[in-house]
Design a binder for these strands. Structure first.
Length: 1000
RNA sequence: GCCCGGGUGAUGGAAUUGGUAUACAUGAGGGACUUAAAAUCCCUUGCCCGCAAGGGCUUGCGAGUUCGAGUCUCGCCCCGGGCACCA
């Protein structure tokens, strides 16, 4: 027996596989294709165990599919541009290129040690000019379609990284990479119009085979809201000089509450506000409190995003005095306010406030004493036939001293805990009625009324009266002024039916279940605005309608009147792709002053240049035409410059290079300026999966034939942290390219799976500072790559991850050593016809044969569903039987090795070729198939339950019927005692599973 | 606050989708081999009562449906993730 030296065999096969091109994908459409993709790596320096956890189990799938005869494309590459590499290089005083490519070399070596079946001939590196030529080309395609444009927008600026970030790269108000608090800065930026695809990005999610939580995250990020845009005219007094605009547009999801809009709120950033303040300096503005408004806005601007949204939820704001708006539905004059609870970047940056039916507006109105107008009355319960209509009240009495609430407990059957309720005679004052009912039922008096609700309708069945009722209730809140007062005597007939209890607010929340009483509690005690649907009141022609049903009617009415329209708003914003940093693909654009003059087009707008010629931008008051770099001049090479540190003045370090900046305009030949910003790294990674299909193509990003053959990706495996950014951007690119005719599909990743996260042995996130980092290199050195790969597959449910347990790896290592020993130990070779394949049923090899086929099925299915841990468990069970068998056929030995091959590629290859004497690789062998009929057992164990309790099991022939099983149960001495002298009432029989005998 | 996941031995985790809970491993304890250790192999290992035979209990907690619930329903507790003044 040779000893198992993993170092030797691993090196040997790594070389051999490369030499034999074992894993090369064929572009010939000879077999059904399988595009198997893992997220490419960021060359940060070292491969950590998390990389391995992504790549190693994923590789098992690729290997198995290849053995199944599919034409597998499993490529790998490096996402080499970007901030982290650049920052790391600066820290080490290295050129980003040096640093990055050294890392790639190192990581490539580590990757190869892992034994993945990548087709290395297709490796892509996004920082290679051969790659970013096409990144730039893609930019120009988007530009031509009007999907890339330049605009000055408030952008997230990271003061530490000295660049702008996309919304997706800001986490909790801080830079995703360096955790520095992001500030808002107005800078002219290149943007991608991803919002043009918001609807499709949302809609297509339903059909994708992706984890539900990932789809949910994308849905939330896109954040579609349907409602209406409504224009509010501004009131013009005699002296008014308000020029433009003379109206404010708001977005609302509740146009059905328009009649309840009692004021408008503008975001501090709203252009109207800015303009009014500006005009104020020219004494044109109508605002009479400009100073107060300005100081409020300055204060709001100083707050970071975090301060604005987290801790302090207390509403703040200031009125724009001197200006009024007109509610177009009611014609009433309403005030305008500025408050930072309205966000400048969502909707129109302005809202109509409906304090009666929106919690935020309610709180704001409470604080500033603004009027609330009820336009929706709640309805609970469902209408029933023959309803009796009654007026009533629900009264909540609060003890001012203890804060407890007066409740009546009617007992379980009559509705449990309620507040005081009662019928109101026609014409009776609700307060008088409530005082009367409270005194009658509880005996308390001397109460102060404080607040009341709108009418609330309740359809219900009054069981005690045996009648269906619709009641129109008013909820009332009273303070009990003197907590010590003794309740006066109750009427005789009321006694015993109920008990009077004082409940804390928490108790009331838990115990009061009745919907009507609940609503009153929510409104008067919890101080919640009623934001649900209900009956419209005080709403002109819509009064009396159900608000949900009336919503489209209301929108139609607005549209007809011309001051409102149906609208959809998304949270998703256009993607800012400019980065004021060195290490990225240069944006391939030139600015030409001469062409701006020639063009004569002075408009600043986003245009589709295929139809309308050059766009014009303004810079320092001067006009420039935007000239795309012609395709034959691509790539715009990233120059080697001496100082690539970010200047921090909003410009890229490339702006320092005269040689780079000054160019001849490709259109008019006059001196012009190059764009000096580079592209966000996420642009590079938005299309890399296309390049893999044809990575060396110099004519186009990938040939149409190859793209058509390989895409879409059949299985994409990578971390959940890319749920919104990369995965959303790549989908956008795919849709845009499809619309340009370059692609034949609209969704790049048909199936997506996330691996879990491996934590340190202490259960905490791995980090150098905690000292709980697991180093894959030393694991490979100690145990061999096969063991590490296999343990990663075995340690946990793949999508779950979990803490690394240092001892656990021993189990897998022992298993592989047993396998090695078993295959390398001399054993009597079976005689011809003896123990062969297929062997006779029964006997030891017969048992092995059955187990083997069950294992083929189990392992195959488990790999397909990424349940690697149970696949390995099945292999272990099977192998235990092989070890115990006295006689195992050569075929069985080969089949087992093939099943193990995707998990442990090195050891299986060594045994396959050196022990079993094959000339070619096991990894190109056909995957074993199983024979369903030979897997079946002749006898089965049937659970026996007596009275629902499991009392034992019997062995019976497969498919035995109930009668036979019953006989067997009664014959079993261990079971008899449970049945002796008892009458069998019923039996439940599940074939091949269980019998449950119910006895008297 | 809202939306997703999840809670099973000492530990990582299984469980044919409503049918014998704890597979497979780790760890621990005991034994064999050895001068010794490591490695290897064998046995034990959910909890409680009992000398034993045996009995009882057990999938975060509490109810419910069912002949039967880790699995379904309702209520609650805890952990992880995402979103969060989005009109």
């Amino acid at each position: 027996m040779k000893l198992y030296h993993h170092e030797k065999i691993e090196k040997k096969w790594q070389k051999q596989w490369l030499a034999e091109e074992t894993y090369k994908a064929s572009d010939n459409k000879v077999a059904r294709k399988f595009y198997h993709l893992v997220m490419f790596a960021y060359p940060s320096g070292d491969l950590h165990i998390g990389h391995w956890y992504n790549f190693a189990p994923a590789d098992v799938v690729a290997r198995k599919k290849r053995m199944e005869g599919l034409n597998v494309l499993s490529p790998f590459g490096f996402d080499a541009f970007g901030l982290p590499a650049e920052n790391a290089a600066i820290k080490r005083k290295l050129h980003p290129k040096e640093w990055t490519y050294a890392n790639i070399d190192r990581m490539r070596g580590q990757l190869e040690s892992m034994g993945p079946s990548y087709d290395w001939s297709r490796q892509v590196i996004t920082a290679d000019p051969e790659y970013y030529t096409w990144t730039q080309w893609m930019f120009l395609q988007l530009y031509k379609k009007g999907l890339a444009y330049r605009a000055e927008v408030p952008a997230n600026w990271c003061p530490s990284c000295k660049t702008v970030l996309a919304n997706e790269q800001v986490v909790d108000g801080a830079c995703e990479r360096c955790k520095t608090i992001v500030v808002q800065k107005n800078i002219e930026q290149w943007m991608f119009k991803i919002t043009a695809y918001a609807d499709e990005l949302l809609r297509n999610l339903d059909a994708l085979d992706w984890p539900e939580r990932t789809k949910t995250m994308q849905r939330n990020w896109i954040g579609r809201s349907e409602g209406a845009r409504i224009k509010f005219k501004l009131h013009k007094s005699q002296t008014a000089q308000i020029t433009n605009p003379d109206e404010i547009e708001v977005f609302t999801t509740r146009p059905d509450t328009i009649f309840g809009a009692t004021y408008l709120v503008l975001a501090p950033e709203h252009p109207f506000v800015t303009e009014q303040l500006l005009e104020n300096t020219n004494h044109k503005s109508q605002i009479t409190n400009a100073y107060a408004v300005k100081s409020y806005i300055d204060q709001a601007a100083k707050k970071t995003e975090i301060e604005r949204t987290s801790l302090e939820k207390e509403k703040t704001g200031v009125e724009l005095e001197g200006i009024k708006a007109i509610n177009p539905a009611t014609g009433q004059e309403i005030p305008l306010w500025v408050a930072d609870y309205v966000l400048g970047h969502y909707g129109t940056g302005a809202i109509m406030a409906v304090p009666a039916h929106d919690q935020r507006d309610y709180e704001f109105a409470e604080k500033f004493g603004l009027p609330k107008k009820i336009v929706i009355e709640p309805v609970c319960g469902d209408p029933r036939p023959d309803e009796e209509y009654r007026l009533s009240i629900v009264a909540i009495v609060e003890d001012r001293k203890t804060g407890k609430l007066l409740s009546i407990n009617w007992g379980r059957e009559l509705g449990g805990n309620l507040f005081v309720g009662g019928g109101r005679e026609n014409g009776e004052d609700p307060i008088q009625c409530a005082l009367r009912e409270i005194e009658e039922e509880t005996g308390y008096h001397r109460l102060t009324p404080t607040s009341s609700t709108e009418a609330i309708y309740h359809h219900y069945r009054a069981h005690s009266k045996n009648k269906n009722r619709l009641i129109e209730a008013i909820g009332l809140h009273f303070y009990l002024e003197d907590g010590d007062q003794k309740p006066v005597k109750l009427e005789e007939d009321e006694k015993g039916k109920f008990t009077v209890e004082w409940l804390t607010k928490d108790e009331a929340r838990a115990k009061v279940k009745d919907p009507l009483h609940r609503l009153v509690f929510d409104r008067l005690v919890e101080k919640h605005a009623y934001a649900g649907e209900g009956m419209m009141v005080d709403s002109g022609e819509f009064t009396g309608l159900e608000s949900g049903k009336a919503l489209p009617l209301v929108i139609g009415w607005m549209e007809k009147a011309g001051w409102g329209m149906h609208a959809i708003t998304y949270k998703l914003h256009d993607w800012i792709v400019s980065r004021q940093r060195y290490w990225g693909a240069p944006i391939p654009v030139i600015y030409c002053a001469q062409c701006a003059i020639n063009d004569g087009n002075t408009k600043y707008e986003i245009r589709n240049t295929e139809q309308t010629g050059n766009n014009i931008i303004l810079r320092n008051g001067k006009k420039y035409a935007v000239i795309p770099v012609p395709p034959d001049q691509l790539p715009v090479r990233l120059p080697d410059i001496d100082d690539y540190t970010p200047p921090g003045d909003g410009k890229s370090p490339l702006a320092r290079s005269e040689a780079f900046t000054n160019v001849q305009c490709p259109e008019c030949g006059k001196p012009a300026k190059r764009e000096t910003d580079t592209m966000d790294t996420f642009v590079d990674s938005s299309w890399y999966f296309l390049r893999y299909t044809d990575p060396h193509n110099a004519e186009t990003f990938a040939s149409k034939e190859n793209v058509a053959h390989w895409l879409p990706v059949d299985l994409y495996i990578g971390g959940a942290e890319h749920s919104v950014m990369h995965l959303l951007y790549a989908r956008f690119f795919t849709m845009a390219l499809a619309d340009m005719g370059w692609l034949h599909f609209r969704e790049p990743f048909a199936a997506l799976r996330h691996q879990g996260i491996i934590l340190g042995p202490d259960g905490e996130k791995m980090s150098k500072s905690r000292g709980n980092v697991i180093d894959p290199d030393s694991l490979v050195k100690n145990f061999g790559a096969d063991t590490v790969r296999m343990y990663l597959c075995f340690m946990s449910e793949y999508s779950q991850g979990g803490p690394w347990s240092p001892g656990g790896i021993n189990g897998v290592h022992r298993f592989l050593q047993r396998v090695w020993k078993w295959y390398t130990s001399p054993r009597p070779s079976p005689q011809k016809g003896e123990g062969d394949f297929p062997p006779p049923r029964g006997g030891i090899e017969g048992g092995v044969f059955k187990t083997l086929h069950k294992t083929i099925k189990k392992v195959g299915e488990d790999i397909d569903t990424l349940k690697f841990n149970t696949a390995i468990s099945a292999l272990m069970i099977c192998f235990r039987q092989l070890e115990e068998a006295t006689d195992v056929s050569a075929e069985t030995r080969e089949i087992f090795l093939k099943l193990l091959a995707p998990f442990a590629p090195f050891i299986t290859e060594e045994l396959w070729r050196e022990q079993l004497g094959h000339a070619s690789s096991i990894h190109r062998e056909p995957w074993p198939t199983y024979d369903p009929s030979s897997m079946e057992d002749e006898s089965v164990s049937i659970a026996v339950q007596i009275g629902g309790k499991t009392r034992g099991a019997i062995t019976a022939p497969k498919d035995a019927d109930e009668a036979n099983v019953r006989v067997a149960v009664h014959a079993d001495p261990r079971l008899q005692k449970y049945l002796e002298g008892k009458e069998v009432k019923k039996t439940v029989f599940v074939k091949n599973r269980l019998i449950n005998i119910l006895v008297a």
